[in-house]
């Protein structure tokens, strides 16, 4: 289990981490979600031992590792741009950590080739890193991280440099791998889709503090503040409540409201109507559109809100 106790870190007077505590169980994946520049990467660097916090402790498996240098923490980390060593080929990159931990070169190389095969890169061991595609580089980095059987797995925006299609595929792949591992995993991302797709729990970071921790379902059902509600993707957020998509009622019996804007989407469309006390943004699916005339700008749409389904904080 990973346990962070009251971590604090400041750069030149600017607070990056402000008394942050969090527990991640073995086998659990926690996504640390927050806007760019809110200290997410710094937190990972602190856990890895690459940055020293001004205050607080990091415990792993019942042991205080706060004073250990990075190389003795038995953790694996994946970086945003993969951080492959450009002077080494793919297999040598994967074997790097094994050699550092005393495995003879030939044996390390052999295990590296096997690890590459396990991520679908059989026979590519001799390839130079710059010859690999973005997705292949990511898989080399993954093999390199996991080959040493780490006690903790840290992922720093590992998908941000990949295109959307590839990203989804690799996220699915990674989820399967994580569930097979019995180590705590901490994923840092600013992309809520990534977080909700991979994590058992989501921790939302704002101004160096965790303002909400819970399963994706809990966070979506009970956002802790207007800021969280907006950040996790709700379109209709007021000062004290949010209207989740499921609270809208369409069709007969609902008041007619003026349509102010219609934007086509891949599936259906996005509509802005004049609601009670402000504009409402609705996403209409193709199925919903099939039951009524296609909304027109300046036209009307019958829509109401089930007040019992509102999310309040």
């Amino acid at each position: 289990m990973l346990e962070l106790r009251d971590l604090a870190l400041a750069f030149a007077g600017r607070r990056v981490l402000d008394g942050l505590s969090l527990q991640v169980a073995a086998g659990e994946t926690v996504a640390l979600l927050g806007p760019s520049g809110e200290g997410k990467s710094s937190l990972l660097a602190v856990i890895a031992g690459l940055l020293r916090p001004q205050r607080g402790q990091v415990w792993l498996g019942g042991r205080d590792i706060s004073r250990l240098p990075p190389e003795q923490r038995q953790l694996a980390m994946m970086f945003q741009d993969h951080a492959l060593f450009p002077h080494l080929d793919a297999a040598a990159n994967v074997a790097f950590g094994l050699q550092e931990r005393g495995v003879p070169r030939a044996a390390a190389r052999q295990r590296a080739e096997a690890a590459l095969a396990a991520v679908g890169l059989a026979g590519r061991g001799a390839a130079a890193c710059h010859q690999l595609s973005g997705g292949e580089q990511q898989r080399v980095a993954l093999a390199r991280a996991l080959i040493g059987e780490p006690a903790l797995f840290l992922l720093d925006e590992p998908f941000s440099s990949l295109d959307t299609h590839l990203k989804q595929q690799l996220i699915d792949d990674l989820r399967q791998r994580l569930s097979a591992m019995a180590v705590p995993t901490l994923l840092v991302t600013h992309d809520r889709h990534e977080a909700f797709a991979l994590a058992d729990r989501v921790a939302i970071l704002q101004h160096g503090r965790l303002i909400q921790v819970g399963t994706p379902g809990e966070v979506l059902a009970r956002p802790a503040s207007a800021w969280v509600a907006r950040f996790v993707g709700f379109d209709n957020v007021a000062a004290d409540h949010a209207i989740p998509p499921a609270a809208f009622r369409l069709g007969d019996g609902q008041p007619l409201r003026t349509v102010k804007l219609v934007e086509p989407r891949v599936e259906g469309c996005r509509v802005v109507v004049a609601g009670d006390g402000g504009d409402w943004v609705l996403s209409l699916s193709a199925r919903e559109l099939a039951t009524q005339p296609y909304p027109q700008r300046g036209g009307h749409l019958a829509v109401g809100v089930d007040r019992a389904a509102l999310l309040r904080w």
């Binding site: 690459l50 240098p69 060593f85 790097f96 950590g97 550092e100």
Partner: peptide, 10 residues
């Protein structure tokens, strides 16, 4: 940094 987390001393 990556090398440090892979077990290499400074």
């Amino acid at each position: 940094n990556a090398a440090r987390t892979l077990g290499a001393s400074p």
